[in-house]
Design a protein around this nucleic acid. Structure first.
Lengths: 271, 271
DNA sequence: CAGTGGTCTAGACCACTGG
DNA sequence: CAGTGGTCTAGACCACTGC
């Protein structure tokens, strides 16, 4: 492997990562036409993250070590890590090191959940009570398949659950997960794990969600939904469809939620 | 004017030719109120932006010029500008310079409007048709005053309008603006300006919105709203309450919108 | 061509963490 | 104390823009 320097000259070849990625290089190098050195370094670190060379919560090598490994200066590694940190893929801690981000340590417990109580203080209401209504293996419909970049009929896991705050059922959601990546996921497991669901996905299945997209609508509650959320049929509910992605923009979860917004609201910040 | 250097020593007054860093005769910094140099520089640039030293769309001085002005290195100015650019306060253009961000040039026409057609292609539907229903001077209620950091009874401008896409009324919104900052704003002006409303605020009133917060709920359409949006009474609508801020976290607009989400949806990206 | 932002390096020093 | 990330500098060179 070689880098294309900013001045369009080629640097020396490189020592590859310490131990071989035994698996065939399915994530083949993109052979970029050209990008700044620090972007290439960023890409290499990203590959190691995807490959699981460092697990969520673990420290990655120091800037100096990475600089030596990639034969660039510390400043260049630094800029690469800066971007990874800006994307929440990695967390810097002065005096300690740089760590692979994990949903298990986000003391903002629910990083992707934007629903907050009208008081604004999510901590005040305590942790959500989760009730798993259903958890079954099934096959992807055309629509589900499209969202998850699968083929129709591919195996998926479907979960239905409610989240309650202060005893009030507030969220009803369905999750669809690629069956191959989530073999063995059970209702038991969904219910018993304490902490963010995405943390469990990391620990038990090695799937780390790094970003998500949501489509939000206002809808009227149908009969079953209204019953589960304990609101009159026809009540306005927030419909939130989320697709969550791992590294490489690979979709790994489709989630359709119905939120009650009589005591909570969806909070968004625009920059 | 003096800076507090990173090493907690004070860099005297301005005339410091080339700092040797060696002469560090530091008296005990009683209350350092310390922040990195580049943050201080960022703050100074921010002050100039607020003060209107450079207007939206104009170029700010080059990195070299600013480095000379503040007696720091280009790299330090660069890091300050990097953060300003990350916050969308400023736009860098290689070979040309760094420019004060403006809503008039955002070729993403509506930077704060997250409602998109279900097709996903906002450009395809063309520009919104705006109909101003009302524009009057009034006095702030307690609630409006709190949102805008005013006192109850302070003058405010209230505007009510609809936005239609492809002839279909899709958004009904009320705007409240501090009366003192928006003297002379008329329905005429709201209706005749072509381009983003926030661009007009910049040009005609020198008020630039830099960020906003939104609270989103699902609600049932009341009679008047339903009529204006041409939907049945009781239809679910997305309620979007936005507070937009200028520099200094000063709230300058309260906006309450009702969105039809039968052909559009609110799109959000989570990182 | 000169001027701008963008990249990269090398080195120094500071602040924080842990043993 | 050594090791880590964080700051700052000085200088070199590249890529883009406009004259």
């Amino acid at each position: 492997m070689s880098y294309i320097r900013y001045d369009s000259t080629v640097a020396s070849t490189l020592p590859l990562p310490s131990n071989g990625d035994t698996a065939a290089a399915d994530a083949a190098p993109a052979t970029p036409a050209f990008s700044p050195l620090y972007q290439q370094i960023k890409g290499l670190i990203l590959q190691s993250l995807q490959a699981g060379e460092w697990k969520p919560g673990e420290a990655i090598p120091s800037e100096m070590d990475l600089a030596a490994r990639f034969r660039v200066s510390q400043g260049t590694v630094r800029k690469a890590i800066d971007e990874l940190a800006a994307e929440n893929l990695v967390v810097r801690r002065q005096g300690k090191g740089t760590f692979v981000a994990t949903h298990a340590e986000d003391h903002v417990q629910y990083r992707f959940l934007k629903l907050v109580p009208d008081s604004g203080d999510r901590d005040a209401e305590g942790p959500a009570q989760r009730d798993v209504l259903e958890c079954r293996r099934t096959r992807a419909t055309a629509e589900i398949a499209r969202s998850l970049a699968l083929r129709s009929g591919d195996p998926v896991v479907q979960i239905r659950r409610t989240l309650s705050f202060g005893g009030v059922p507030t969220i009803l959601e369905d999750l669809w997960l690629p069956g191959n990546a989530f073999k063995g996921l059970s209702a038991q497991q969904m219910a018993s794990y304490h902490g963010p669901t995405y943390a469990m996905f990391e620990l038990d299945f090695g799937v780390r969600m790094v970003r998500a997209e949501e489509k939000i609508r206002a809808v009227a509650a149908d009969g079953p939904s209204a019953a589960l959320l304990q609101v009159p049929e026809g009540s306005p509910l927030l419909s939130v469809e989320r697709i969550a992605y791992t590294y490489n923009d690979l979709p790994m979860e489709l989630r359709r939620g119905l939120y009650r917004t009589d005591t909570h609201h969806y909070r968004n910040e625009l920059n």
